[in-house]
Protein backbone atom coordinates (compact mmCIF):
# COMPACT_ATOMS: atom_id res chain seq x y z
CA UNK A 1 0.00 0.00 0.00
CA UNK A 2 2.71 2.45 1.06
CA UNK A 3 4.74 1.58 -2.01
CA UNK A 4 1.72 2.20 -4.21
CA UNK A 5 0.39 5.41 -2.72
CA UNK A 6 3.74 6.86 -1.65
CA UNK A 7 4.99 7.59 -5.16
CA UNK A 8 1.54 8.88 -6.14
CA UNK A 9 1.55 11.37 -3.27
CA UNK A 10 5.11 12.32 -4.11
CA UNK A 11 4.23 12.95 -7.73
CA UNK A 12 1.16 14.92 -6.66
CA UNK A 13 3.23 17.35 -4.60
CA UNK A 14 5.92 17.49 -7.28
CA UNK A 15 3.42 18.39 -10.00
CA UNK A 16 1.75 20.99 -7.79
CA UNK A 17 5.16 22.54 -7.13
CA UNK A 18 5.99 22.43 -10.83
CA UNK A 19 2.72 24.22 -11.48
CA UNK A 20 3.57 26.92 -8.93
CA UNK A 21 7.07 27.15 -10.35
CA UNK A 22 5.75 27.49 -13.90
CA UNK A 23 3.28 30.18 -12.93
CA UNK A 24 5.95 32.03 -11.00
CA UNK A 25 8.41 31.82 -13.89
CA UNK A 26 5.75 32.95 -16.37
CA UNK A 27 4.90 35.95 -14.17
CA UNK A 28 8.55 36.77 -13.65
CA UNK A 29 8.99 36.95 -17.44
CA UNK A 30 5.74 38.68 -18.36
CA UNK A 31 5.42 41.03 -15.39
CA UNK A 32 8.88 41.43 -13.92
CA UNK A 33 8.64 43.28 -10.65
CA UNK A 34 10.44 46.62 -11.00
CA UNK A 35 13.33 47.38 -8.67
CA UNK A 36 12.37 49.47 -5.67
CA UNK A 37 14.04 52.61 -4.41
CA UNK A 38 14.60 50.89 -1.04
CA UNK A 39 16.38 47.94 -2.65
CA UNK A 40 18.72 50.14 -4.68
CA UNK A 41 19.39 53.04 -2.35
CA UNK A 42 19.20 51.65 1.19
CA UNK A 43 22.69 51.60 2.71
CA UNK A 44 24.18 49.15 5.19
CA UNK A 45 25.61 50.64 8.38
CA UNK A 46 29.08 52.12 8.31
CA UNK A 47 31.82 49.92 9.74
CA UNK A 48 32.88 51.59 12.96
CA UNK A 49 34.70 49.97 15.87
CA UNK A 50 33.40 49.97 19.45
CA UNK A 51 35.19 49.05 22.64
CA UNK A 52 32.67 46.28 23.31
CA UNK A 53 33.16 44.52 19.96
CA UNK A 54 34.42 40.98 19.89
CA UNK A 55 34.80 38.30 22.50
CA UNK A 56 37.12 40.39 24.69
CA UNK A 57 35.48 43.81 24.25
CA UNK A 58 34.13 45.64 27.27
CA UNK A 59 32.18 48.85 27.75
CA UNK A 60 34.14 52.08 28.07
CA UNK A 61 32.49 53.72 31.08
CA UNK A 62 33.61 57.22 30.16
CA UNK A 63 32.03 56.76 26.76
CA UNK A 64 28.83 55.42 28.31
CA UNK A 65 28.64 58.49 30.57
CA UNK A 66 29.08 60.77 27.54
CA UNK A 67 26.46 58.77 25.67
CA UNK A 68 24.10 59.07 28.61
CA UNK A 69 24.57 62.83 28.49
CA UNK A 70 23.66 62.83 24.79
CA UNK A 71 20.58 60.75 25.55
CA UNK A 72 19.64 63.06 28.41
CA UNK A 73 20.04 66.30 26.50
CA UNK A 74 18.91 65.25 23.02
CA UNK A 75 17.10 61.92 22.71
CA UNK A 76 15.09 61.98 25.94
CA UNK A 77 12.93 64.81 24.65
CA UNK A 78 11.04 62.30 22.49
CA UNK A 79 12.29 58.80 23.33
CA UNK A 80 11.60 56.87 26.51
CA UNK A 81 13.95 54.34 28.11
CA UNK A 82 11.54 52.43 30.23
CA UNK A 83 13.42 49.16 30.75
CA UNK A 84 16.27 50.99 32.45
CA UNK A 85 16.16 52.13 36.08
CA UNK A 86 18.09 55.09 37.47
CA UNK A 87 19.83 52.71 39.89
CA UNK A 88 21.35 50.96 36.84
CA UNK A 89 23.41 54.07 36.19
CA UNK A 90 25.80 53.01 38.94
CA UNK A 91 27.11 50.56 36.33
CA UNK A 92 28.32 53.56 34.30
CA UNK A 93 30.54 54.59 37.19
CA UNK A 94 28.27 57.08 38.92
CA UNK A 95 28.14 56.78 42.70
CA UNK A 96 24.94 56.46 44.71
CA UNK A 97 24.69 60.17 45.48
CA UNK A 98 25.18 61.10 41.82
CA UNK A 99 22.53 58.63 40.76
CA UNK A 100 20.17 60.02 43.35
CA UNK A 101 20.77 63.52 42.07
CA UNK A 102 20.29 62.48 38.43
CA UNK A 103 17.01 60.78 39.33
CA UNK A 104 15.81 63.71 41.40
CA UNK A 105 16.66 66.32 38.78
CA UNK A 106 15.35 64.34 35.82
CA UNK A 107 13.01 66.67 33.92
CA UNK A 108 10.29 64.14 33.41
CA UNK A 109 8.75 63.31 36.78
CA UNK A 110 7.49 60.00 38.09
CA UNK A 111 3.75 59.78 37.99
CA UNK A 112 1.74 59.03 41.10
CA UNK A 113 -1.78 57.87 41.69
CA UNK A 114 -3.49 57.96 45.04
CA UNK A 115 -5.95 55.05 45.06
CA UNK A 116 -7.79 56.60 47.98
CA UNK A 117 -8.50 60.02 46.53
CA UNK A 118 -8.07 59.17 42.84
CA UNK A 119 -5.66 62.07 42.51
CA UNK A 120 -2.93 61.87 39.89
CA UNK A 121 0.23 63.80 40.38
CA UNK A 122 3.96 63.51 40.10
CA UNK A 123 7.02 63.39 42.29
CA UNK A 124 10.77 63.48 41.69
CA UNK A 125 12.25 60.19 40.51
CA UNK A 126 14.01 57.85 42.93
CA UNK A 127 16.97 55.63 42.07
CA UNK A 128 14.68 52.60 42.23
CA UNK A 129 12.38 54.09 39.57
CA UNK A 130 12.64 53.22 35.92
CA UNK A 131 13.08 56.12 33.53
CA UNK A 132 9.62 57.67 33.25
CA UNK A 133 7.71 57.25 29.99
CA UNK A 134 7.96 60.03 27.41
CA UNK A 135 4.77 60.97 25.60
CA UNK A 136 5.18 62.43 22.16
CA UNK A 137 2.27 64.07 20.40
CA UNK A 138 3.98 65.04 17.14
CA UNK A 139 4.31 63.12 13.91
CA UNK A 140 5.73 59.63 14.13
CA UNK A 141 6.05 57.24 17.06
CA UNK A 142 9.47 57.58 18.64
CA UNK A 143 10.29 54.05 19.79
CA UNK A 144 11.44 53.25 23.30
CA UNK A 145 15.23 53.13 23.10
CA UNK A 146 15.94 50.57 25.85
CA UNK A 147 16.41 47.71 23.41
CA UNK A 148 16.96 49.55 20.16
CA UNK A 149 20.53 48.29 19.77
CA UNK A 150 19.31 44.68 19.91
CA UNK A 151 16.15 45.17 17.89
CA UNK A 152 17.83 46.58 14.78
CA UNK A 153 20.13 44.75 12.39
CA UNK A 154 23.59 46.22 12.82
CA UNK A 155 23.03 47.34 16.43
CA UNK A 156 25.34 50.16 17.53
CA UNK A 157 26.74 50.61 14.02
CA UNK A 158 23.24 51.13 12.69
CA UNK A 159 22.44 53.76 15.32
CA UNK A 160 25.67 55.61 14.59
CA UNK A 161 25.03 55.50 10.83
CA UNK A 162 21.45 56.65 11.21
CA UNK A 163 22.43 59.60 13.40
CA UNK A 164 25.19 60.70 11.04
CA UNK A 165 23.53 59.63 7.80
CA UNK A 166 21.10 62.47 7.15
CA UNK A 167 21.83 63.95 3.78
CA UNK A 168 20.29 66.02 1.04
CA UNK A 169 18.04 63.90 -1.14
CA UNK A 170 18.49 66.14 -4.20
CA UNK A 171 21.38 64.78 -6.20
CA UNK A 172 21.79 61.74 -3.91
CA UNK A 173 23.56 58.87 -5.66
CA UNK A 174 24.22 55.31 -4.54
CA UNK A 175 27.45 53.34 -4.88
CA UNK A 176 26.71 52.51 -8.51
CA UNK A 177 26.37 56.18 -9.39
CA UNK A 178 22.59 55.95 -9.90
CA UNK A 179 20.75 59.08 -8.86
CA UNK A 180 17.71 58.46 -6.66
CA UNK A 181 15.38 61.20 -7.84
CA UNK A 182 16.22 60.62 -11.50
CA UNK A 183 15.40 56.92 -11.26
CA UNK A 184 12.47 57.29 -8.87
CA UNK A 185 10.95 60.78 -9.11
CA UNK A 186 8.05 59.54 -6.94
CA UNK A 187 10.41 58.66 -4.11
CA UNK A 188 10.75 62.32 -3.16
CA UNK A 189 10.63 62.62 0.62
CA UNK A 190 7.16 63.74 1.74
CA UNK A 191 6.73 66.86 3.87
CA UNK A 192 7.35 66.17 7.53
CA UNK A 193 9.70 63.28 6.81
CA UNK A 194 13.47 63.38 6.47
CA UNK A 195 15.73 61.56 4.03
CA UNK A 196 18.25 59.10 5.43
CA UNK A 197 19.65 56.26 3.28
CA UNK A 198 20.44 54.16 6.37
CA UNK A 199 16.75 53.95 7.30
CA UNK A 200 14.98 50.92 5.83
CA UNK A 201 12.53 52.84 3.68
CA UNK A 202 14.78 55.91 3.27
CA UNK A 203 12.45 58.44 4.91
CA UNK A 204 11.82 58.79 8.62
CA UNK A 205 9.85 61.10 10.85
CA UNK A 206 12.76 61.98 13.10
CA UNK A 207 14.58 65.17 12.06
CA UNK A 208 18.35 65.07 12.33
CA UNK A 209 18.88 65.06 16.12
CA UNK A 210 22.62 65.76 16.24
CA UNK A 211 23.13 68.85 14.14
CA UNK A 212 26.24 70.68 15.28
CA UNK A 213 29.52 70.05 17.03
CA UNK A 214 29.38 71.00 20.67
CA UNK A 215 25.62 70.46 20.90
CA UNK A 216 26.28 68.58 24.12
CA UNK A 217 28.99 69.76 26.49
CA UNK A 218 31.15 66.87 27.65
CA UNK A 219 32.53 67.12 31.14
CA UNK A 220 35.52 64.87 30.40
CA UNK A 221 36.99 67.23 27.83
CA UNK A 222 36.32 65.01 24.83
CA UNK A 223 35.53 67.09 21.72
CA UNK A 224 31.80 66.73 21.12
CA UNK A 225 31.78 66.38 17.36
CA UNK A 226 28.59 65.10 15.76
CA UNK A 227 30.36 61.84 14.95
CA UNK A 228 31.68 61.47 18.51
CA UNK A 229 28.25 62.17 20.01
CA UNK A 230 26.71 59.58 17.66
CA UNK A 231 29.34 57.03 18.64
CA UNK A 232 28.88 57.71 22.33
CA UNK A 233 25.11 57.49 22.31
CA UNK A 234 25.30 54.29 20.23
CA UNK A 235 27.56 52.80 22.89
CA UNK A 236 25.19 53.99 25.62
CA UNK A 237 22.22 52.41 23.88
CA UNK A 238 24.14 49.16 23.51
CA UNK A 239 24.57 49.23 27.26
CA UNK A 240 20.87 49.91 27.85
CA UNK A 241 20.02 46.94 25.62
CA UNK A 242 22.58 44.54 27.05
CA UNK A 243 23.71 45.80 30.45
CA UNK A 244 25.16 42.40 31.34
CA UNK A 245 27.49 42.30 28.33
CA UNK A 246 30.65 42.69 30.41
CA UNK A 247 29.56 40.15 33.00
CA UNK A 248 28.50 37.75 30.27
CA UNK A 249 31.93 37.75 28.64
CA UNK A 250 33.74 37.71 31.97
CA UNK A 251 31.77 34.62 32.94
CA UNK A 252 32.16 33.03 29.52
CA UNK A 253 35.94 32.75 29.46
CA UNK A 254 36.41 30.78 32.68
CA UNK A 255 33.46 28.58 31.74
CA UNK A 256 34.93 27.81 28.32
CA UNK A 257 38.39 27.26 29.82
CA UNK A 258 36.98 24.82 32.35
CA UNK A 259 35.00 23.01 29.67
CA UNK A 260 38.07 22.76 27.45
CA UNK A 261 40.08 21.16 30.24
CA UNK A 262 37.19 18.85 31.11
CA UNK A 263 36.76 17.86 27.47
CA UNK A 264 40.45 17.09 27.02
CA UNK A 265 40.32 14.93 30.15
CA UNK A 266 37.16 13.26 28.90
CA UNK A 267 38.91 12.50 25.63
CA UNK A 268 41.92 11.00 27.41
CA UNK A 269 39.63 8.99 29.67
CA UNK A 270 37.71 7.75 26.65
CA UNK A 271 40.99 6.64 25.04
CA UNK A 272 41.94 4.83 28.24
CA UNK A 273 38.67 2.99 28.39
CA UNK A 274 38.84 1.98 24.75
CA UNK A 275 42.57 1.16 24.78
CA UNK A 276 42.02 -2.59 24.62
CA UNK A 277 39.27 -2.51 21.99
CA UNK A 278 41.01 -0.94 18.99
Amino acid sequence: MVRLFGPLVGLFFAVALLWSFGNGAYNAVTQPSPPTAEALFHKHPKEVAFSFDGAFGTFDKAQLQRGFKVYQEVCSNCHSLKQVAFRDLTQLGYNEAEVKAIAKNWGNKAQTFDPKTGDRGDRPNLPSDHFPPVYYAGQGNPPDLSLVAKSRHGGAQYIHSLLTGYTDQVGYKNGQGQELLKMFPDAKTPDGLYFNPYFANLNLAMPQPLTSDGQVTYSDGKAATVDQMALDVSAFLTWTAEPKLDKRKQTGWPVLGFLLAATVLAYLAKRNVWADKH
Binding site: A55, R248, K249, T251, G252, W253, V255, L256, L259, L260, A262, T263, A266, Y267, A269, K270, N272, V273, W274
Partner: peptide, 22 residues
Amino acid sequence: AKDGFGLGIFLMVYCALVFFAP
Protein backbone atom coordinates in the same frame (compact mmCIF):
# COMPACT_ATOMS: atom_id res chain seq x y z
CA ALA B 1 33.21 7.56 28.34
CA LYS B 2 32.63 8.30 24.68
CA ASP B 3 29.41 10.20 25.43
CA GLY B 4 31.22 12.16 28.13
CA PHE B 5 33.66 13.42 25.54
CA GLY B 6 30.82 14.22 23.14
CA LEU B 7 29.04 16.09 25.91
CA GLY B 8 32.15 18.21 26.45
CA ILE B 9 32.17 19.27 22.80
CA PHE B 10 28.43 19.95 22.95
CA LEU B 11 28.81 22.13 26.03
CA MET B 12 31.66 24.11 24.51
CA VAL B 13 29.62 24.97 21.42
CA TYR B 14 26.62 25.73 23.59
CA CYS B 15 28.53 27.98 25.99
CA ALA B 16 30.26 29.77 23.12
CA LEU B 17 26.78 30.68 21.87
CA VAL B 18 25.36 31.62 25.27
CA PHE B 19 28.28 33.76 26.38
CA PHE B 20 29.60 35.23 23.15
CA ALA B 21 26.84 35.21 20.54
CA PRO B 22 23.58 34.82 22.45
